[in-house]
Nucleic acid binder design. Structure first.
Length: 156
DNA sequence: GCCAACGTTGGC
DNA sequence: GCCAACGTTGGC
């Protein structure tokens, strides 16, 4: 079991949206490092901290689970999509995604400020300045600590 | 809205 | 393969 952190802007797709739909294809990833994490690092069943970026305040708001294998992100071939990539070849799709399913919403957000202030979370990528990756690996001890700060049990 | 950080593109 | 220009992310 590996642990991850996935960012999303609540104005676009927040934890409430995931709770409502239950499961969502994580489309729009247009960064090679993030894609590689999804493709090579993740396994079905892995857990991810759901993080609200560009929010007031930004922070961890819940937990999602990797719910599918990787498959091509359909938005890359959709000329009407803002994620359209005319350079991607359908025979060899450049962008991939996985589905994520809702696990739980934290009773209260653990803000970025709190994450940064917690010594036990030192080294967590999201707390480091300049980390813009929308998908990052999270150490098990960090994942558990965030659950504890949020007042929830680590999901099975 | 500003702007630092950083990834990508493309000319050479 | 270098690197300047440009675009995007995301905290503040």
């Amino acid at each position: 079991m590996k642990y991850w952190l996935i960012k999303s802007e609540p104005d676009v797709f927040g934890i409430e949206d995931l709770e409502k739909v239950g499961r969502e294809p994580w489309d729009g990833i247009r960064n090679y490092q993030a894609r590689n994490f999804m493709r090579d690092g993740m396994e079905v069943g892995d857990l991810a901290i759901f993080y609200h970026s560009n929010a007031k305040p930004p922070g961890a708001v819940g937990i999602a689970r990797v719910a599918s294998d990787v498959y091509p992100d359909p938005t890359q071939f959709d000329s009407k999509s803002k994620y359209h990539d005319p350079k991607s070849n359908p025979d060899e799709p450049r962008w991939l995604l996985r589905d994520f399913e809702f696990v739980l919403k934290f009773p209260e957000m653990v803000s970025l400020e709190e994450l940064k202030a917690e010594a036990a979370l030192e080294g967590m990528m999201v707390t480091q300045r300049g980390t813009r990756l929308s998908i990052t690996p999270v150490e098990a001890k960090h994942f558990k600590k965030v659950c504890k700060m949020a007042g929830v049990k680590v999901p099975k």
